[in-house]
Write a protein that binds this DNA or RNA. Sequence first.
DNA 1: TGTCGTACTGACAAAATAGTCAGTACAGGA
DNA 2: TCCTGTACTGACTATTTTGTCAGTACGACA
Lengths: 112, 112
Amino acid sequence: MPVSKKEISACPIDAMLSVVDGRWKGTILWRLSEGPMRTSELRRSIPGITERMLIRHLQDLVRDGILVRHQENAVPPCVRYSISKYGRTLVPVLEAICAWGRSHIQRVNRGR
Amino acid sequence: MPVSKKEISACPIDAMLSVVDGRWKGTILWRLSEGPMRTSELRRSIPGITERMLIRHLQDLVRDGILVRHQENAVPPCVRYSISKYGRTLVPVLEAICAWGRSHIQRVNRGR
DNA sequence: TGTCGTACTGACAAAATAGTCAGTACAGGA
DNA sequence: TCCTGTACTGACTATTTTGTCAGTACGACA
């Protein structure tokens, strides 16, 4: 969709979509809804994602207040991402999206 | 987000987002949730949209089964779009998205 | 010493999406 | 006759997003 992410839209639907929109953001949030994860864990758990894209999306989500980044000063570095309190308000919406998406997939697969 | 719309994603969130994702689709669905509208009515009711983009998005939504296109064979042509029965299953999800988006806009505006 | 893993950044190319512009056919009104 | 409105299509450019590749610093391990 590229709804422009540069500035917040006046349309509430667009405003919400600008937060979860991104090739992998839905999947990232889905993984993190089960608990905090390290960057490399996330990367390995999402087939097809590149490190670059993972980090870009994670940064977007942190900027939007949806995720929190916890860094332990160690070598090798250890960074963990988790869903923030604000981000948790988004989870029920994601669940609604997911439920509809699931039935949509079935519908599409039936139709061919 | 350009989640690729070429093929349906296995991730339900992406599958749902691929339907509503598009610079203007949220707004179009929002307008049509109040009742059927003609192409030109929609265009005039959505500031900033071009006829080209409106028609492209309408065609996407019809292809996905969300909208129905009613054509009256007249000159000048009169085409009306309405939300299909299937599309109506999407409305509660859009409402959840919209409610979250509304509070997100407020949060963002407070923060500056 | 060489290689691996971690969590990144920057520069860039490729792909997808959005937007611009011109053109179509026909009826009605000035 | 000319201009307007309707609902489109096609060709194209521009913008945005995604993906690729190389590079960083440091410790552990062989």
